[in-house]
Amino acid sequence: MVKKENEKNIEVQARRERPQPAETLLPLVDVWQDESEVTHLVAEMPGVANEDVRVEVDKGVLTISGKASWQEPPPEKYSPTYLGFTNGEFYRAFALSDEIDRDKIAANMCCGVLKLMLPKAEAAKTRRIEITAE
């Protein structure tokens, strides 16, 4: 497990092994931690229907994936004039810190954006130690 000294709960892992679909798209993400030490991960997966998103945790690796399901107009009737994006499968894997409580991960998908909330386990939270004067 990779863990940096500045307490990063999620570390992006590039080029992991994965199944080979026709076109793999990398979802763009925002990652941050809030005051209550919950790590938030927001990923853009345009065209992926809510029921097609998969979020998996396996051996400390968090995987988000999903197939974009928008339909291209039939090629026999339409010719592409300009193509800026393609249909494909989104895939991205992250190394997950041991501090994150696996059972409390919450996911929410709306209008092509996946939101994950990854709370820390109670035992891993920062605790303030009171200093008592003698």
Partner: peptide, 14 residues
């Protein structure tokens, strides 16, 4: 392949 980025939307024209 990285898609999107920023706010500028990708488009396809058929």
């Amino acid at each position: 392949r990285r898609i999107g980025g920023g706010v500028f939307p990708n488009i396809n024209i058929y």
